[in-house]
Simulated assay, not measured.
Amino acid sequence: MSGPHPQSGFTLLELMITVAILAVITAFAVPSFQSLIMLNRLASEANELVAALGQTRTEAIRVNRRVILCRAATDGGTVAAATGCVAGGGRWAGWMVFVDADASGTYNPNAASNPDEVLIRTHAFHGNLLQTVAGNALSGAGNRIVFRPDGLARAPGQTLLQTATLRLCEASATIQQNARDVRLGGGSRVSVARATSAACAAPEDV
Results as ranks from 00 to 15, higher is better:
176 Q>K: 10
127 G>W: 12
64 N>G: 09
48 E>T: 12
10 F>P: 04
146 V>K: 00
179 A>S: 14
28 F>Q: 08
149 P>F: 14
10 F>Q: 08
95 W>D: 01
48 E>V: 13
12 L>R: 08
35 S>P: 02
170 E>M: 13
64 N>Q: 15
30 V>T: 07
108 N>K: 11
116 D>Y: 13
94 G>L: 02
170 E>G: 03
140 G>T: 00
88 G>E: 11
123 H>S: 07
202 A>F: 00
75 D>E: 09
47 N>Y: 07
175 I>K: 05
146 V>N: 01
193 A>R: 06
122 T>V: 07
24 V>L: 13
71 R>Q: 09
164 A>Q: 02
77 G>E: 06
205 D>I: 12
199 A>C: 09
33 F>L: 13
115 P>Y: 07
169 C>D: 03
121 R>V: 05
124 A>V: 09
12 L>W: 07
171 A>T: 13
9 G>R: 05
98 F>K: 01
82 A>W: 01
204 E>M: 13
198 A>H: 07
206 V>R: 10
71 R>S: 11
141 A>Y: 02
71 R>F: 03
139 S>Q: 09
116 D>A: 13
139 S>H: 06
29 A>F: 11
40 N>I: 05
49 L>T: 07
140 G>Q: 00
65 R>K: 15
4 P>L: 07
185 G>N: 09
181 D>R: 04
118 V>G: 03
171 A>W: 04
97 V>Q: 01
132 T>W: 03
157 G>D: 11
19 V>A: 14
61 I>L: 13
63 V>K: 06
191 S>I: 05
131 Q>D: 13
77 G>K: 08
142 G>P: 04
21 I>E: 02
91 R>G: 12
54 G>I: 05
134 A>S: 14
126 H>N: 11
197 S>I: 06
73 A>Y: 00
187 G>C: 04
165 T>Y: 02
165 T>C: 14
22 L>R: 03
206 V>A: 11
152 L>I: 14
161 L>C: 03
48 E>Y: 06
44 S>R: 14
66 R>G: 08
80 A>I: 02
146 V>P: 00
123 H>A: 08
187 G>M: 00
199 A>Q: 15
21 I>G: 03
166 L>R: 02
53 L>D: 00
77 G>M: 09
8 S>W: 08
52 A>W: 02
203 P>Y: 04
25 I>S: 10
179 A>V: 04
153 A>H: 00
73 A>S: 10
7 Q>L: 10
143 N>E: 07
69 L>V: 08
43 A>C: 04
